[in-house]
């Protein structure tokens, strides 16, 4: 089977879904690039090249470059969805969600409920998150936790190309508004991805590795770090079970609880700031529903409660690392 990068897998999904259903449209800043300029359109196909080739194939009615107007972009996506299209809007950096939270949070998320079930908003908002590229405080954040807390929105956080393509396909074909978070450091990570279309369901986590001593739950890029740490811990006789939830809303709580019931220990690795994060959310769920199975306190491996620094050494210290994960797991194994 061919290996593809996450970027290529997502691009492939967009091509396939736009081919399959003419109601799928793409809109955002520079999704084609070059509109109105001497160099002509399709100058870039997205700043991370996720939407490359779409404009040429599907035209300007379906691949819409917008001015910098996040709230209009997402608002238009919500309105178009209400009116029967399946828009896939792009917000270039998830840090910009502050500018366009209302159309997700108060509009798209709530139409179905407020209108008594008589409406639906099948929109997908794709956005880029994550640190590690020295993009500094306003271009490196992860904020899937706040979107997760909104009833009516679903959130996907793929960690690899295979899941990325499958989850995006499910998101586009589904009837609910979806926030789809792509980690910028994973765009080039490659693995086997089938050529044909397929779906990965929301709410079913992936057990990336079986183990018996401790359950590690991790998101996006942290899944890879967790598995690297787990590899090294084998030599110390510690067997880690690593779960990638893949979607934070819905969350596969059941898989996490089943795992903790067997291992008795939980470490959550999350790139987001610690307060009100997915890490603290999962800790709360496990503490209240698997209390009788815990043999050690739950450990959370997160950055500190600070913005993301620019200097590369500081950014490295800010982020959870494989070594920190190992340390937390070792501590959890000792605590009785």
């Amino acid at each position: 089977m061919p290996e593809k990068s996450m970027r290529d897998a997502i691009n492939e999904c967009l091509h396939q879904e736009m081919e399959r259903d003419e109601n799928v449209i793409v809109l955002g800043e520079d999704v084609a690039g070059g509109m109105g300029s001497p160099g002509g359109p399709e100058a870039i196909g997205g700043v991370f090249s996720l939407t490359a080739g779409l404009f040429t194939k599907y035209g300007e009615q379906r691949v819409i470059d917008t001015p910098i107007s996040e709230s209009a972009i997402v608002g238009a996506a919500a309105g178009a969805a209400l009116a029967g299209l399946r828009p896939v809007a792009e917000i270039m950096f998830t840090d910009f969600m502050g500018l366009c939270l209302d159309p997700v949070y108060n509009q798209g998320a709530k139409f179905k409920y407020m209108f008594g079930g008589k409406a639906k908003t099948p929109m997908v908002i794709r956005t880029t998150m994550g640190a590690g590229m020295s993009a500094a405080a306003q271009h490196s954040q992860t904020n899937y936790a706040w979107l997760t807390s909104i009833p009516g929105v679903k959130c996907a956080v793929p960690s690899n190309a295979y899941d990325a393509k499958g989850l995006l396909t499910s998101a586009i074909r589904g009837e609910d508004p979806v926030m789809y978070f792509e980690h910028k450091m994973l765009y080039m990570a490659a693995c086997e991805v089938p050529d044909e279309s397929y779906t990965v369901p929301f709410g079913k986590g992936n057990l990336t590795r079986e183990g018996s001593d401790v359950t590690i739950v991790a998101f996006a890029r942290m899944v890879h770090l967790a598995n690297e740490a787990a590899d090294e811990l084998v030599a110390e006789g510690i067997s880690c079970e690593v779960i990638d939830p893949r979607t934070t809303s819905p969350l596969d709580e059941e898989l996490i609880l089943e795992s903790v019931q067997q291992t008795g220990r939980l470490v959550v690795v999350d790139e987001s700031n610690p307060r009100c994060s997915m890490a603290s959310d999962i800790a709360g769920i496990v503490a209240s529903q698997a209390f009788d199975y815990l043999d050690a306190p739950i450990k959370l491996v997160t950055p500190p409660h600070t913005p993301i620094p620019f200097a590369p050494n500081l950014e490295y210290a800010y982020l959870p690392s494989k070594d920190r994960i190992k340390q937390e797991v070792q501590q959890v194994m000792e605590a009785l």
Binding site: G75, A80, A83, F111, F115
Partner: peptide
């Protein structure tokens, strides 16, 4: 709201409506 009548909803957020209308128009 009544989508059957083309009515995409009254809106509690001031300014919430116009972007929605642009999207509907594109559709």
């Amino acid at each position: 709201a009544d989508l059957d009548q083309g009515m995409l909803g009254a809106n509690g957020i001031v300014g919430g409506g116009p972007p929605l209308a642009v999207g509907a128009a594109i559709a």
